[in-house]
Computed example of a mutant assay.
Amino acid sequence: MSRRQATKSRVARFPKKRTDRPKASNKLTTFTASDLQAMEFPPLEFVVEGLITEGLTLLAGKPKMGKSWMALDLAMSVAIGCEALCDRACKKGATLYCALEDNPRRLRRRMIQNYGDQTSWPENFHFSVQLKKLDDGGLDQLEDFIEEHRPSLIIIDTLVCVRPKVKGKNEYEADYAALSPLQKLAGEHGIAIIVIHHLRKMSGEDPLDMVSGTTGLTGAVDNVLVLDRKSDGVTLYGRGREMENIDVAVELDDGLWRVLGDTDSVRISSERRSIIDVLQNAGKPMGPKDIADALKWPQENVRQLLLSMATNGEVKKPRRGKYELP
Results as ranks from 00 to 15, higher is better:
residue 6 A to R: 13
residue 9 S to M: 12
residue 21 R to C: 05
residue 22 P to I: 01
residue 22 P to E: 01
residue 30 T to H: 07
residue 33 A to W: 02
residue 35 D to C: 08
residue 37 Q to W: 09
residue 37 Q to G: 11
residue 40 E to C: 04
residue 42 P to D: 15
residue 49 E to W: 05
residue 55 G to V: 04
residue 69 W to K: 01
residue 69 W to S: 02
residue 75 A to R: 04
residue 76 M to S: 04
residue 78 V to D: 02
residue 82 C to L: 05
residue 83 E to N: 12
residue 85 L to R: 07
residue 86 C to L: 06
residue 88 R to F: 03
residue 95 T to L: 12
residue 108 R to D: 09
residue 110 R to W: 07
residue 114 N to I: 02
residue 124 N to I: 12
residue 125 F to A: 12
residue 130 Q to D: 14
residue 139 L to R: 00
residue 141 Q to Y: 00
residue 145 F to T: 01
residue 151 P to L: 01
residue 160 V to T: 10
residue 165 K to A: 10
residue 165 K to V: 13
residue 165 K to C: 08
residue 167 K to L: 11
residue 172 Y to W: 14
residue 174 A to T: 15
residue 174 A to P: 03
residue 180 S to H: 09
residue 181 P to C: 07
residue 185 L to Y: 01
residue 190 G to D: 15
residue 193 I to M: 06
residue 193 I to E: 00
residue 195 V to G: 00
residue 198 H to Q: 15
residue 200 R to F: 03
residue 214 T to W: 11
residue 215 T to R: 15
residue 216 G to D: 03
residue 219 G to H: 04
residue 222 D to G: 13
residue 225 L to M: 08
residue 225 L to G: 10
residue 227 L to I: 03
residue 247 D to C: 15
residue 269 S to A: 15
residue 276 I to N: 08
residue 279 L to R: 00
residue 284 K to L: 10
residue 285 P to N: 08
residue 293 D to L: 13
residue 294 A to P: 09
residue 295 L to H: 01
residue 298 P to I: 03
residue 299 Q to W: 04
residue 306 L to V: 03
residue 307 L to C: 06
residue 316 K to V: 14
residue 319 R to D: 07
residue 319 R to C: 07
residue 320 R to I: 05
residue 321 G to H: 05
residue 322 K to G: 01
residue 326 P to H: 02
residue 326 P to S: 11
